[in-house]
Simulated scan of single mutants.
Amino acid sequence: MHKPDLHLSAAEAARELGVSAKALRLYERRGLLTPLRSAAGWRIYGPAEMDRARDIVALRQLGMGVARIAEVLAAGGEGLSAALADHHADLAQQLNRMTEIVQSVEAARRGMMPVANPDEGAAVSLQLPWPWGGERFDLPAIKPLTYITGPLGSGKTRLARAIAEAIPNAAFIDLERLTGADEAMETDPQRKARVDAHLRQFAGQGIDPPPALSALVRAIEACDAAVLVIDMVEQGLDHETQQALRRYLRGRSFGGRPLFLLTRSSSILDCTDVSTEESIIYCPANHDVPIVVEPRKGARGYEAVATCLATPAVRARTEGMIAWRPNVA
């Protein structure tokens, strides 16, 4: 049994706490725990350090993130009740999301994926707008994530808007993310609470949410549509934030709603890591009919998709540029 006056080595402390020595080093690196040092420089843990470590381990066992634990400890225990309430809300949201995913998987297994045009055998079937020549575009199935990409001036934004119009109860979120979002937050505190929960999730991943990310999250939560089509999802986000956003979107963190993401960033669309729950739509530069591209080398359109994607640094150099602007009213 542990005696309160003992000073333990890192291995002994880890064993008593039921964690690994690596976990203790992580807590130390993140500033949560500061062990004492022996004359030889070895880490040792006295009664005070062990008490603090037990608090950390207890909160981690509740699933609380390291960043959130740091906030609780920095406040000296004050606000613990509020932190636990926020954490409970986050867990409830995750549970709801996982329930929706399970239901979607069950529906997919029964062949019940949503079909807007069953007579035509496609989830989406529409007549392409200008600059196409009125050809039809068919999307076989609406998956949780669909990427829309293509070179500059290829018409992908027009296609995205047309898709949003063709799908019942779908909405297009343009680059003016906050249009109407502030009013929605003010009139519905639950929306604001969800936004705050999302942003805390990013903070827990070590991401300090920039204004562009906050605006995107608020725009999504302000919209009640069942399907969202989002223009240039990477707008204003750096490489690390884009990668965190991609992970977050793939986790179906916004109520399990299908998302169509316009992108030209390789941090958002990684052709080597596209799951069966994701689709790619490619708009050719010559305004040929858009195609659904299989995420495998050698597939039709795969190389074209790869060549029109770029890192955030390259994208920043071409931001706002277009290849051609039509002279029409």
Results as ranks from 00 to 15, higher is better:
residue 146 T to G: 00
residue 146 T to L: 04
residue 147 Y to W: 10
residue 150 G to L: 05
residue 150 G to P: 04
residue 151 P to E: 15
residue 151 P to L: 12
residue 153 G to K: 12
residue 153 G to S: 10
residue 153 G to V: 12
residue 154 S to I: 15
residue 154 S to E: 09
residue 155 G to C: 13
residue 157 T to R: 03
residue 158 R to S: 09
residue 158 R to W: 11
residue 159 L to S: 01
residue 160 A to T: 13
residue 160 A to E: 11
residue 161 R to D: 04
residue 162 A to F: 09
residue 166 A to R: 14
residue 168 P to V: 09
residue 169 N to C: 08
residue 170 A to M: 06
residue 172 F to S: 01
residue 173 I to V: 15
residue 173 I to H: 07
residue 173 I to K: 09
residue 174 D to S: 14
residue 175 L to R: 05
residue 175 L to A: 02
residue 177 R to G: 01
residue 177 R to D: 02
residue 179 T to D: 05
residue 179 T to P: 02
residue 181 A to F: 07
residue 183 E to F: 00
residue 183 E to P: 00
residue 184 A to R: 04
residue 185 M to F: 00
residue 185 M to E: 05
residue 186 E to T: 09
residue 190 Q to M: 12
residue 191 R to T: 13
residue 194 R to H: 01
residue 194 R to S: 08
residue 195 V to G: 06
residue 196 D to N: 05
residue 198 H to V: 11
residue 198 H to C: 10
residue 198 H to S: 11
residue 201 Q to W: 07
residue 201 Q to T: 13
residue 202 F to I: 08
residue 203 A to F: 09
residue 204 G to P: 05
residue 204 G to A: 11
residue 206 G to I: 12
residue 207 I to T: 06
residue 207 I to F: 00
residue 208 D to Y: 14
residue 208 D to T: 15
residue 209 P to G: 02
residue 209 P to L: 03
residue 211 P to H: 11
residue 214 S to G: 10
residue 219 A to C: 04
residue 220 I to L: 12
residue 220 I to P: 04
residue 222 A to K: 03
residue 223 C to Q: 06
residue 224 D to Q: 12
residue 224 D to T: 12
residue 224 D to Y: 10
residue 226 A to C: 09
residue 226 A to P: 01
residue 227 V to I: 09
residue 227 V to D: 07
residue 228 L to E: 08
residue 230 I to V: 14
residue 230 I to C: 06
residue 231 D to Y: 00
residue 231 D to L: 04
residue 233 V to M: 04
residue 234 E to F: 12
residue 235 Q to L: 12
residue 235 Q to N: 11
residue 236 G to K: 08
residue 236 G to N: 08
residue 237 L to Q: 06
residue 237 L to H: 02
residue 239 H to I: 15
residue 240 E to Q: 10
residue 241 T to K: 06
